[in-house]
Write a protein that binds this DNA or RNA. Structure first.
Lengths: 361, 361
DNA sequence: CTGTTAGCGCATTCAC
DNA sequence: GTGAATGCGCTAACAG
């Protein structure tokens, strides 16, 4: 029997009345705690069933100071890097009875602050921040307030903040070293967003690998600044227009690497014969582009899972889990965009999963 | 000055005290409504700033009966079909001040019921259900309760339910007709999940197109049942093992189509020369696989946007918007997996955007 | 094992 | 223009 407006949902009071018990008893059977006589419990359950009663989580949260929701802040769910990560946190959260409120920022610091603010008003029990672009001071302020906080791929020097990062420096080193091992000497870097912590560390790894081989870093071999296919294409174009174009490029992420491949081929040149390309992330697409992309894989789902697990430890436990920063080591996945001896079949996306290593902070 | 535990956040009461006004006045300046003297407002604002006060949305929701959150239920965020859709609803929701709580069901009806239940406990203001697998009766029950409900790619005969669907029958017709126009007569169908409404309509479109050309539908030319690359590969294998294998296949979605391409090539045969393949969805990957996939495009972001807009109309307005079912027409994107005269350059993903048509219900 | 009494933080009648 | 009182639906002490 449909009615005109949203029906007033049944309350715990009505359930109690119909079951002829006190409110508290109903509360007890709902929360499973304490002892309730079997008879009473059965009556209550029957009424709950009949009324289709659902406890109001807002009311509950108001008193318990727990909303049962966590906030997940990412750059953009359409960026293929994020779905696996989101899924990882969702699954871990759901397993412990939490929901996730998802917010995209497009890497805009102002929007990030705004969504964090709203999330906090909604009384989320904690926050997972990916691709965070707000100043450290702001983040420390949150941590000082006592907001459980987990950062992904960014660290924060604060006793109450926690992070899950994959070692971007090492990833950059491995990428560039791979190119060096293949004989390349003019290796370009397709830069990610200037404000990005990941970008900085990958670039650092790149320079370290170069330095280790006594190759001087050439700043003219850096182009880009936005992580997208289009930007990768554009940056590659600039590089190709150089008097002495690079023979290889290490891209901030797979999206840029794919754009770079497109641009190289658009000009009638070949990958990897004319230009070798390494990406970063190992998004699903990477295995399917032509040629399949050699890339530094991040364990995305695992990162999400770990971030959620650590966050919930902070929420439910007392002190932040140790080590405060959990560092995972990324792995080079060799496919065909570099001309190295490649594995025979296309690697199924997400199969091997990079190794994991914890580092103290 | 960090403390050990989460600080007790400031309340409206403290703000009122420090600003030397009543609670109500604070409430007024926060909600922007009613008149407040400039002096009082300024004082309040200053205190809010100083205390870093954030109104407690749970408490507010308890009294207003509005949580400011909507529930978004999808199959799996890792399936490339969903991110653009999710982004569409997120953006539309954010623009009106709503957050979205995301839940994956993996197309499991029991899990779907469970997440819906939790979402309702959290007092979401409405629900967007994609890839819904629960019985219609259950959905009608929700609608009867007065829960604002928008279904995506599924319809529900109920005066208070609303839907955004892309015409799967027409999509199927276009896909198969395209193959027929290319001269194919043995056209297989890679089936999606049996419980899927999208699957049923696409299959129907396929059969209608066949019938229109007086071709008898051959049930042995149907394989599959799961929407994934692996399942597509598997199903294609079965088809290829037939005494009389098909010369073309229409796949339930792009993932299956990509799996099919892989299997065909694994056997040393070519796409489209030996087997022509059409997919459905136009996920980003489709433009990048080799050969680029001809597919029936769904306007994913737009679907999400419309779903959110309609939901919020129901939430904030009185009656469900008309037409109750909004039908979008999908468009065939011709690339190279069918051997048709294809467009010269790779179509940038998501560029043209299928046409839109509303249909009354 | 069970009921009674207080609020949680806020918005909302009313008066003033 | 503003304030005091009431309750949203629920949990948490405490008795009993």
């Amino acid at each position: 029997m449909p009615r005109e407006t949203r029906n007033a949902p049944p309350t715990i009071k009505q359930v109690a009345a119909l079951a002829r018990v006190s409110i508290k008893t109903v509360s007890r059977v709902i929360n499973g705690a304490a002892y309730v006589s079997d008879a009473a419990r059965r009556r209550v359950l029957r009424v709950i069933e009949r009324l289709n009663y659902r406890p109001n989580a807002l009311a509950r949260g108001l008193v318990t100071r727990r909303s049962g929701s966590i906030g997940l802040v990412i750059a953009d769910i359409v960026n293929p890097f994020f779905p696996p990560l989101v899924r990882g946190v969702e699954d871990a959260a759901a397993a412990r009875g939490y929901n996730v409120i998802l917010c995209d920022t497009d890497e805009d610091a102002a929007r990030e602050r705004a969504v964090i603010s709203v999330l906090l008003e909604k009384q989320v029990d904690g926050l997972i921040l990916c691709a965070s672009r707000v100043p450290s001071g702001y983040l420390k302020g949150l941590a000082d307030e006592g907001v459980p906080l987990v950062l992904v791929n960014r660290v924060l020097a604060h006793p109450r903040a926690t992070a899950v990062v994959v070692d971007g420096v090492e990833g950059g080193r491995r990428a560039t070293r791979h190119l060096l091992d293949l004989g390349h000497r003019r290796i370009a870097y397709l830069a990610g967003p200037a404000g990005s912590f990941s970008h900085r560390s990958r670039l650092r790894g790149d320079r370290e690998a170069l330095a280790a081989r006594k190759i001087v870093f050439d700043p003219s071999l850096v182009a880009g600044g936005i992580a997208s296919i289009a930007a990768g294409r554009q940056a590659m174009a600039e590089l190709l227009d150089l008097k002495r174009p690079p023979s290889a490029v290490f891209a901030f992420d797979d999206l840029m690497a794919i754009g770079a491949i497109e641009e190289v081929r658009r000009r009638g040149r070949r990958v990897p014969e004319d230009v070798a390309i390494v990406g970063f992330d190992d998004i699903d697409l990477a295995a399917f582009v032509d040629p399949p992309l050699t890339t530094v894989a991040q364990p995305k789902t695992e990162m999400g899972r770990l971030a959620a697990l650590r966050l919930l430890e902070m929420v439910e436990g007392s002190s932040p889990p140790r080590p405060r920063t959990m560092t995972l080591t990324p792995e080079l996945v060799i496919r065909r965009s570099c001309g190295a001896r490649s594995i025979p079949t296309i690697r199924a996306p997400g199969t091997p999963g990079p190794s994991r290593k914890e580092a103290l902070t």
